[in-house]
Write a protein that binds this DNA or RNA. Structure first.
Length: 478
RNA sequence: GGCCCCAUCGUCUAGUGGACUAGGACACCUGGUUCUCAGCCAGGAGAUCGGGGGUUCGAAUCCCCCUGGGGCUACCA
């Protein structure tokens, strides 16, 4: 099995999903998973994309057994195969210029004819050929497709697919710059690398008859083909830039967990016959089967992925989750680059309180900000609703006074003390809890108040209560 | 235009001739838990299986046509 991406840009969800399915299949059947970089188009090569591909695979835990191989380093092999086909009459040199080809296509389009090479050079006589060769004209090597009959192959997912040979033109195998096209390179490598199952995207179906004919011409054993359904954007169009983040690395940055992404991607276009959606990596390997692969394209909708990520975040042991969140906190300057054990301990307790609200690791910043900052930003709505209550100033004074002497400053005592204040004030507990939350966090939503106060610690809480009291008194004067 | 692939709730999907008053999940709505949110629990709404013909005692499941969507149609992959 192999995953053979082309380094023409940052890998997207679809590319990685193909890698995942291939990997799953290889692991399930004890096969060898090979990474092969199809860098045969020098013009479209994007610097750094190979690294991104490898980083993405590693991040997801898709380890490869061999490679990466680079097709650009195997040029002589492809030429050898192409020449062999020329010798056996299955291929020929074509000297047509790009200009002629373009003109030909224009005419065909104008005449509403199917476009394609007219095979002119296929029928050149030896003398004509020798003459052109003598001039040193550049050439490509084209495969000579059978002129009649049809090519039939059995797709592991879709069953039998057939194409009429006459409709397939003599495609280029070797370009004039000496590089192979995809067709030549992949067939050659798949054969030499002992690939038994070619698993790739649906967009390759129409190229498969060419590959089949090459195998036949070369006398090579045919691998099995499996064409995965495509992944479309919410507008049912092929995934592209305007669909938001389609680049895989962006998901990594936003704080998706590899476990969640793995699980989600495995279920995009594949399913086991059971009412379940949460699977571990091992369970997926155990269950994966080409027969469970969907034939119709799937629309990529991030909502379910987001939900699943939340599930996996909540399942994470808190120590691990804290380590995962740390980089985000540091980037936001909420934590220093080299935190002390005490600071990590504090962050961990904070994260434990907010974890169930987190769907992305990056959300740790907006979610926990107020635990770390010296000065709070108050939510306008909360201030208006709660700081205007007549009893609030008195309430804050009482809380400050009692918290100051409260020992130990723990959950149980904080709760008892706070509720006692409500009783004395003759109001419901909620009437105290809500304004206090605003005073202490600046917000109207968040974790349970008493837990929050306990984690913040006495000093920080007192300071915030005083600040709130000051603010209310100022407001009263105006 | 030509060739090819595909078609079940908004989305991911289960379903391979009778167990289907079409199941699950996300999202959505309601109720419960509770100091808010989230979480959790319970419930609800949501698909005449794209349309039309067949085959059959019986079709989401098989066949044909139509429609729709997608892919390919490069010296790109």
């Amino acid at each position: 099995m192999r995953f053979a991406p082309s380094p023409t840009g940052s890998p997207h969800i679809g590319n990685i999903r193909t890698a995942l399915f291939t990997w799953l299949f290889a692991r399930k059947h004890g096969g060898v998973f090979i990474l092969r970089i199809e860098d045969t188009d020098r013009a479209r090569y994007v610097e750094g994309s190979v690294q991104e591909i490898m980083d993405s695979l590693r991040w997801l835990g898709l380890d490869w057994d061999e490679g990466p191989y680079f097709q650009s380093q195997r040029l002589p092999l492809y030429r050898e195969v192409a020449e062999k086909l020329v010798k056996t009459g299955h291929a020929y040199r074509c000297y047509c210029t790009p200009e002629r080809l373009e003109e030909l296509r224009r005419q065909q389009e104008a005449a509403k004819q199917p476009t394609g090479y007219d095979r002119r050079c296929r029928y050149l006589s030896d003398e004509q050929r020798a003459k052109i060769e003598a001039e040193g004209a550049p050439y490509v090597i084209r495969f000579a497709m059978p002129l009649e009959g049809e090519t039939v192959f059995h797709d592991q997912i879709r069953g039998e697919i057939r194409f009429e040979n006459a409709l397939i033109d003599d495609f280029v195998m070797l370009k004039s710059d000496g590089f192979p096209t995809y067709h030549l390179a992949s067939v050659t490598d798949d054969h030499h690398m002992g690939i038994t199952h070619v698993i790739r995207g649906e967009e390759w179906i129409s190229s498969t008859p060419r590959h089949v004919q090459m195998y036949l011409a070369l006398g090579w054993e045919m691998p099995k083909f499996a064409h995965l359904p495509m992944i479309l954007g919410t507008d049912r169009k092929k995934l592209s830039k305007r669909h938001g983040s389609v680049q895989f690395v962006e998901y990594i940055q936003q704080g998706y967990l590899p476990e969640a992404m793995f699980n989600f991607l495995a279920l995009l276009g594949w399913s086991a016959d059971e009412d379940r959606e949460l699977y571990s990596r091992e369970e997926l390997i155990e269950r994966f089967d080409l027969s469970g692969v969907q034939e119709n394209p799937a629309i990529f909708d991030g909502q379910k992925l987001l939900w699943m990520n939340g599930v996996y975040i909540r399942r994470k042991p808190i120590e691990e989750l804290t380590q995962l969140c740390l980089p985000y906190l540091q980037q936001a300057r909420l934590m220093p680059p080299d935190p002390t054990p005490q600071q990590i301990e504090y962050a961990q307790r904070v994260i434990a309180l907010e974890a169930e609200r987190m769907k992305l690791l990056s959300e740790v910043v907006p979610l926990t900000e107020y635990f770390f900052r010296d000065t709070l930003e108050y939510e306008e709505k909360g201030v208006r609703k709660w700081f205007t209550q007549p009893y609030v100033a008195q309430m804050l004074e009482m809380l400050i006074e009692r918290y100051t002497t409260l020992e130990p400053f723990d959950l149980e005592h904080i709760e008892a003390t706070t509720r006692a204040v409500a009783d004395e004030l003759g109001v419901g507990a909620a009437q105290v809890i809500h304004p206090t939350r605003v005073a202490v966090s600046g917000r109207t939503v968040g974790p349970g108040l008493f837990e929050m106060i306990e984690v913040m610690g006495k000093e920080r809480v007192l300071q915030r209560l005083r600040a709130a009291l000051e603010m209310i008194r100022q407001g009263a004067k105006d």
